[in-house]
């Protein structure tokens, strides 16, 4: 992608954001209030962190459907550790370790043993949900949460930003460093783009696939930590609400920016949060959120598909010539 088209894409993204924000603001001026913007950023944080992890798996051209289940297991593990009186850092590490381990397991199954990614990750996700029932037989855990300092992760501030948003920005920064600025990023993209050519170029393609799944699991559990911190309780279905927004963010971003990347995923997350937050302000109930997100996703995939956009462009030949 040349810098020029990237600039156009960023402009287009800014325009879409402005239009959506303008529409909601015209309906309800509170949309652009400081309080709502903070709420919006908080909303972005949970979904954004999970979507960041998924981005890596999509970059190496695989799928992970296990991360919602894994996140639930991570949430319950963390909750159980906190309830058991463990220090907060230990509990969070425990939760994140769950994500890492499941991710590595997925990665090895897919890369080394060549199991089909979709069904394998559905199965491991199912397993993770099963394990998440172990701690409390399915009831939610909130003992010691108030004392442990977990809730401060949600309520605290860092450099003037709400902590969840700061964590998202931090994770995104690390993600950008890895994917855009480090040699590993090159290896991730090369693996996804053309695995054979990458292997011939000396890229350890299997290791990159395992790493992508591991990062996806890790990020899913980090995102669920934020979620639990904001809701104040860990429960076995904590992760399930991550699936749709994460896929939508990655695919929406990739559709807007031409390929999956950290920035594209952040942009996708932002668009979704804008819409969800806006509709919430318009008093549209929570259970419509997946409907909105999935409709936008289907439309985006359809409209940005090269064959379909090509067909649309053929319908307006004059414009095509002007661009060329």
């Amino acid at each position: 992608m040349t810098t020029n088209t990237l600039f156009i894409r960023i402009l287009a993204f800014g325009a879409i954001v402005a239009i959506i924000a303008g529409l909601f603001w015209s309906q309800n001026p509170a949309f652009l209030s400081t309080g709502n913007i903070r709420a919006l950023m908080r909303h972005m944080s949970v979904n954004g962190v999970a979507a960041l992890g998924l981005t890596f798996v999509i970059v190496v051209r695989h799928f992970d459907l296990s991360f919602p289940g894994v996140a639930s297991f991570g949430a319950m593990t963390m909750g159980w550790l906190i309830a058991g009186g463990q220090p907060l850092w230990m509990a969070i590490s425990g939760g994140l370790a769950v994500g890492l381990l499941f991710g590595i397991f997925n990665g090895i199954a897919v890369a080394r043993f060549k199991l089909p990614d979709i069904v394998t990750t559905i199965a491991t996700g199912g397993l993770a949900i099963g394990f998440s029932y172990f701690y409390s037989n399915g009831t939610s855990i909130s003992r010691n949460f108030f004392m442990s300092g977990l809730l401060d992760i949600n309520d605290g501030r860092f450099l003037g930003l709400d902590r969840p948003f700061a964590i998202l920005l931090g994770a995104a920064l690390i993600g950008i460093l890895i994917l855009n600025a480090s040699r590993f990023g090159r290896a991730f993209y090369a693996t996804g783009e053309n695995e054979t050519a990458a292997w011939y170029s000396g890229v350890p393609v299997n290791a990159m696939v395992v790493a992508a799944f591991a990062l996806c699991g890790l990020c899913a559990c980090l995102s669920v930590v934020l979620l639990v911190a904001s809701s104040g309780a860990a429960n076995v279905s904590a992760g399930t609400q991550l699936l749709m927004p994460a896929f939508a963010a990655v695919y929406l971003g990739a559709a807007l920016f031409g390929r999956p990347s950290v920035l594209a995923t952040l942009a996708g997350t932002m668009l979704m949060s804008l819409m969800l937050n806006g509709f919430t302000l318009l008093a549209i109930p929570y259970y419509y959120s997946d409907a909105i997100v999935s409709t936008v996703l289907i439309l985006a995939i359809t409209c940005f598909d090269p064959r379909i956009s090509g067909a649309l462009r053929r319908l307006i030949p004059a414009r095509k010539e002007k661009l060329a």
């Binding site: 695919y251 997946d290 997100v293 999935s294 289907i298 995939i301």
Partner: peptide, 10 residues
């Protein structure tokens, strides 16, 4: 996959 994830969520 992505299409049926989305239509399923819808």
């Amino acid at each position: 996959l992505v299409i049926t994830i989305a239509s399923g969520a819808l």
